[in-house]
Design a protein around this nucleic acid. Structure first.
Lengths: 209, 209, 209, 209
DNA sequence: TATGAATGAGCATTCATTCAT
DNA sequence: GATGAATGAATGCTCATTCAT
C-alpha cells in the first residue's frame, strides 16, 4: 500500500493516453465480466493488452485504477444527467418524474459498473467521495427539476426532499439489479409505482376540510 | 473453491455445536472489528480458538462460513421483526410507520453485520438468497402492518406497495450509513421525512372534485 | 515491510524445528554459495526444500530470516571463543596472542558468513545489535586473556585496549578476506606481524632512562 | 546484466561531459541521501534530470554507474592524501601519526560514500579493484611518511608494516562509523589510543639488556 | 476428532533494460 | 542525440485448503 490513490499522472502523449485509457477500460471490463473478485492488476494489464509494468507507470497501485474508473463513470453519469435535464423541458410533473426514473434506471443499467466499483472497495477511503459525488449529482438534478415546477408541487425543503427522492428511487432500483426483482412485478410496473410514490410525495396537499 | 456452499452439516453433539457456533461468532467478530478485508479462514479459526483443521471439518470453505453467519443474522432479523409486529398493536398509521422505520433503522444499526456479509461476497451466488430473505421478511412485515389498517389506507396491491416501501426506506437508510449523511439533515429529520414519504404514498386519496 | 524482525516463534515440535533449521541453513547456504544478491525468500525456500508458505509460517519477512541466521552465527562464535579461552591456559603472552589471532582468523574463515549477513543488510536496524554482539564477545575474550596476564603487560584501561586490539585485528583480517591480500605477504607472515603489533602495544614499557 | 562494467565511454564533448557528470553526481546523491537500497537507474536518471534513455547511452548498466562513482571517489581520496603528505612536513612521529589518523578519519567521514559504494555491490567483481586502489593509496601514504622518518623508527619491512598499520586504523575507524562506538571511549580518546598502538608498533626497540 | 504443519497458486509491486519515435 | 513509453522477469508476501499425525 502506498498512500497515494491518484493516478501518477494523466499523460498527454497520444500513445500514452491510449495506454491509460486501455487500462481503465480493461478494469471496467474485468469488473463487469468477471466480477470484483477477479480484479487484479495482472488481469487488468492482461486484458488491456499492456504489460504490468506499464500499468504501474500510470497508476501507483491497484486502488488508483479503480478510483480512475470511478471518476470516469462519475463523469459520464453527469453528462447523462445534463442531457436528461435538457430534454425534460416543461412537461407535466408525472411525465417528467417517470422520465427521470427511466433515465436513472437506464443509467443504472449502464452504470452498474460505477456501483460495483463504489462497493468493490468500500474500505478505500477515497472511494467515499465518489459515492458522495454520485448522490450529489442525482440530487442536484432532482432539485432543478422541482424548481422548474414550483406551482405544481407543495411548499417544501428542496434539499431534504431531493435527498429522500433520490435514495428512495435508488433503493428500489438497487433492489432490482441486486437480483431481488420479484415475480409479481415487472420492471415497468415497478417504475409506474415509483412514479406514484414520488408524485404523491411532492404534490400539493388538498385544501384542508 | 469447491462448489459446496453449505456447511458440511449443522452438528448435533453439544461440543460440536459449541465449536460450530464459535466459528460463526468469530467470523462475525472479525467482520465487525477488523473489516471485511481481514476475514480469512486462518484468522477466523484463530479468533474462534480452534485449529484451522477444525474449521474445515465443519465448513467446506470460507464462503460457507459467511453464509452460515448470514443465516444466523437473517434469523435474528426475523425475530426482531416479529417482536416489532407484536408491539405495534393498533396504533395510528403515522405512528406505526414511524415506529417501523425507527425499528428498521435500529435493526440496520444492529445488523450492519448482515449487510456487510451480504455485500462482502456479492459474487457468491448463494448470498443472493439471503438478500432475498431479508427483503422478503421486511416486506412481509410491512404487508401485515398495512393489512391491519385496511380502513386508513387506500386500495392497493399489497405486494407491490410493500416492495416499494421497503426499498424506499432501505435506500434512504443505506444512504446514511454509507456515509452520505448530509449536513442539512439530521437522522431524526430524515426519519420524519421518510415517514412523510410513506404516509403520503399509502393514505387514502381525497375524494375527487 | 512489517516492523517485526523477529522470527514468528521458535517452534517446538520436531518436524517444525527441522523446517525452521532447514530455512536458516538454506539462507546460510545461499548467502555463502550464491552471494548476498541471490538471497530471496523464494530461493531460500527452494534450497530448504520447503514451500514458500512454510517459510512465512516461521518468519514474518525476509529480514527476520537473515536476523535468525545472524543469531545462530553469533551463538557459535561465542561457543568458539569459550573453547579458545579454555585451552589458552597460562601460556606466555606472545604465544597466546598468536593463538588468539589464529583463532579469530579461523573463526573468520568459518564466519565469513556472519560478516556477510551483518553487511548484507546494513540498513536493517536490528542487524546493528548483532554487530555489537560480535564485537562485544571478541572484546570480552581479549579482556579476560589480558586479565590473566596482569604481570606481563603494562598498566592500562582494559576496555579501551581490548577495543583497539579487537578492531585492529579485525581490520587486518577483513583486508585479507576482502581480497586485499597482497603479493608481498603470506597469511602466516601477516599473522606474525599482527602479533607483533599487539604485543608491542600491550607489553610493559622499559624503565625510563 | 551485461558483462561490461565500464562506462561506454567517457565522452569528450562539453554537453555530453556535463550529462555524464550529472549522472554520476546523481548516483552519489541518491546513495548519500536515500541509502543504497534506493539506488536505481530510474531514480538516478530522475535526480540527474536526464531521461533513462540518456543514462543508458553513457552507461551500459547500473553497475557501471556505481563503478564510475567509485572511480571518482578514489580520485578525490588520492588528492586528499597528497595534500596531507604535503603539509605533514618534518613533524615528530607521534604528531604526524596523529595527523594521519585524523586525516584518515576526516576522509572517512567525507568518503563514507566510497565505502558505501564499495560495499553496496560487493558481489560486483570489478568493485574489488577499487577497494584495492583505496588500500594501496593509503598504504602508499604511510610508506612515504615512514620513509621520511628513517631514524626515528625501527628497522622493518615497509610494505608489511604499512599494510598492518593501515588496516589496523581502518578496522578501528570502521568500528566507529559502523555504530560500534562504545560508551567508554570518545572519538578523541580512541584516536589517542590508536596513535599509541601505531607508535609503539614502529618505534625503535630499546637496546636489549 | 482435533491439530497445525505444509502447500502453492496467486497477488501487488519494482526495476533494469530496450527501442520506436 | 535524446526521450520516455513499454517490457516482463523477479520479488516479497498472503491465504484457502489439504493431510499426516
Amino acid at each position: 500500500m502506498n498512500g497515494e490513490w491518484k493516478a501518477r499522472r494523466k499523460p498527454t502523449q497520444a500513445r500514452a493516453i491510449a495506454t491509460w485509457d486501455a487500462i481503465v477500460e480493461a478494469c471496467a471490463q474485468v469488473l463487469r465480466d468477471e466480477g470484483a473478485a477477479a480484479v487484479s492488476t495482472n488481469r487488468i494489464a492482461e486484458v488491456a493488452g499492456v504489460s504490468i509494468g506499464s500499468l504501474y507507470q500510470y497508476f501507483p497501485n491497484k486502488e488508483s485504477v479503480l478510483l480512475a474508473l470511478a471518476d470516469r463513470e462519475v463523469e459520464t453519469l453527469r453528462d447523462n444527467l445534463e442531457a436528461l435535464l435538457r430534454v425534460s423541458g416543461d412537461l407535466h410533473a408525472e411525465v417528467v418524474v417517470e422520465q427521470v426514473i427511466r433515465g436513472m434506471f437506464a443509467m443504472r443499467e449502464q452504470h452498474v459498473l460505477l456501483m460495483r466499483v463504489a462497493q468493490a472497495d468500500r474500505d478505500l477511503p477515497d472511494m467515499a467521495s465518489r459515492r458522495v459525488a454520485v448522490a450529489e449529482s442525482l440530487r442536484d438534478m432532482v432539485r432543478r427539476l422541482l424548481a422548474r415546477r414550483k406551482g405544481q408541487v407543495r411548499e417544501m425543503d428542496a434539499d431534504v426532499v431531493s435527498f429522500v427522492i433520490v435514495h428512495a428511487i435508488q433503493g428500489n432500483l438497487q433492489a432490482i439489479d441486486g437480483g431481488l426483482e420479484p415475480w409479481f412485478l415487472s420492471k415497468d410496473e415497478l417504475i409506474d409505482e415509483i412514479v406514484a410514490l414520488v408524485v404523491r410525495y411532492v404534490r400539493a396537499d388538498p385544501p384542508a376540510g
